[in-house]
Simulated scan of single mutants.
Amino acid sequence: MGRLSPWHLVALIVLATAGFLLFLGRVPICDCGYVKLWHGVTNSSGNSQHLTDWYTPSHVLHGLLFFAMLHVLLPRVAIGWRLVLATLVEAGWEIAENTSMVIERYRAVTISLDYYGDAVVNSVGDMLAMMLGFWLARVLPVWLSVALFLGTEAVTIWFIRDGLILNVLMLLWPIEALRQWQAAG
């Protein structure tokens, strides 16, 4: 058997993360018994339980950001190995996000009062979305990646009053007026 390529490692990271999430007690799929490609109702028990939802675009943005940061920090490292690193970071977030501590933090300080963590299928979808964002950042001109980031944030803020920046802000430094504005939507 030869050396593992970066692409093999990325696949192993995704599979290992899914296995670890199952070990942590995360449900493999929605308790409803089926998997939808898209679940567009944020304030529902199906949110974060299907393959994609309104928070999937934020994971695409993770990929854009990871590509940019790794391009600056590790410019001589081959793209495949940078994707391995980005996938490790995303996997780490998916595991952390589904711990009791982070779930309780979301429920305490954000509008996600009914958030109980992700189904494993959703976490896998989020990791694939990050990879899509990483690939897009690789092939798009910088100005278009920036426009995609800003446009995606604008669309999610418009439709669900949330997005990557608001989510991080509210998780780390909650602002009551912002939480009330989000809840009014």
Rank of each mutant, 00 (worst) to 15 (best):
W143R: 15
E90H: 02
L148K: 11
Y116A: 13
V109G: 10
T52M: 14
S58K: 05
V72A: 12
R161K: 14
A129T: 03
W93H: 04
R105I: 07
T152D: 04
D53S: 08
C32D: 10
H62K: 07
T99D: 11
S112D: 14
S45H: 13
I157Y: 07
V155D: 05
S45W: 06
S48D: 07
A86D: 06
S45P: 13
A68Q: 09
M131W: 05
F66H: 03
D126W: 09
G46Y: 06
H50L: 14
I165T: 11
N98I: 04
Q49N: 05
P75S: 05
G33K: 03
I95D: 02
V142G: 12
C32I: 07
R138N: 07
I95W: 04
W158L: 12
T42N: 02
L74R: 03
G125L: 09
L70F: 14
G163Q: 10
H62D: 08
D126A: 15
T110F: 05
L132H: 02
P141V: 00
A108F: 08
A91F: 02
R161M: 05
A68K: 04
V35I: 15
L144Y: 11
W81L: 07
M130D: 02
R76T: 14
G92V: 11
R82F: 00
H71R: 08
I165F: 12
G40L: 01
V109K: 02
V146F: 01
L65G: 09
L132F: 09
Y34W: 01
V35D: 05
S48A: 12
W81P: 08
Y34S: 03
L85S: 08
S44H: 12
P75G: 01
L65D: 05
I165K: 00
D162T: 08
E94S: 10
S45L: 14
L61G: 04
G151P: 07
R105Y: 09
V124F: 05
F67G: 03
V139F: 14
S45T: 15
A96H: 09
L128P: 06
H59P: 06
L83D: 03
I103D: 07
N47M: 06
D126E: 11
T42R: 08
L140N: 12
I79H: 06
P75R: 06
G133Y: 00
L128N: 08
M131P: 01
K36A: 08
V155N: 06
E97A: 11
A147E: 14
G63V: 10
W81D: 13
G92S: 10
L37F: 15
G151A: 12
G80H: 09
L74G: 02
P141L: 04
